[in-house]
């Protein structure tokens, strides 16, 4: 019989209590138990960064954690970035305005990574942005639109602050 536990995880302010197998990865928990499918899975070995979430405010790879390890923790995913159903967050808006996404698969990981990065470094250089997203693979854009979006978002966020 499989090893199971009941866990309670707060995602984007909503608490999800589920009984899960202890071997369930956090990414699978978020996607298939909580049905928050915005977080994507691209490699399951911690390289591509598509599954990046904010764990207690810090970015982490959700494919490299077990769901049980998130018991009692706070998680923010791509679904929890926009202020409401109608508006985009300035970072998201900058992605649209700078063609920072094509297929959209790496995008959630890019957004969570940059959300944390821009808080810590509100006025980054291009090089700093490129290093900040070096753990997120994008196969569509060549990163140019993403980097432009991040620099644009930094300006918008500063102007808004």
């Amino acid at each position: 019989m499989s090893d199971r536990r009941t866990i309670s995880v707060t995602i984007n302010g909503e608490t999800f209590e589920r009984e899960v197998e202890t071997r369930l990865t956090l990414s699978d928990f978020i996607r298939h138990e909580c049905l928050l499918t915005g977080t994507h899975v691209g490699c399951e070995h911690g390289v591509c960064g598509a599954c990046t979430i904010l764990l207690n405010g810090q970015t982490a790879r959700s494919c490299l954690m077990l769901a049980v390890q998130a018991d009692g923790q706070e998680i923010r995913t791509v679904e929890g970035i926009a202020p409401n159903d109608q508006e985009l967050h300035p970072l998201q808006q900058a992605f649209q305005d700078n063609h920072g996404l094509q297929c959209g698969y790496c995008t959630p990981g890019m957004l969570t990574t940059l959300l944390e990065f821009l808080e810590e470094n509100p006025d980054p250089t291009e090089r700093e942005v490129r290093e900040a997203i070096s753990g997120n693979l994008c196969r569509c854009t060549g990163y140019q639109g993403i980097v432009a979006a991040a620099l644009d978002a930094a300006k918008r966020l500063q102007a808004g602050a």
Binding site: R23, T25, E44, H45, R61, L64, Q69
Partner: peptide
């Protein structure tokens, strides 16, 4: 032992290691 998991978790996901018990020290 499962510490930060940045090496062990990929090895578990790829089933390169097959432990009977995982001791999470987080």
């Amino acid at each position: 032992l499962l510490a930060g998991g940045q090496s062990l978790m990929p090895m578990l996901n790829m089933r390169f290691v097959l432990p009977d018990d995982v001791i999470d020290i987080n």
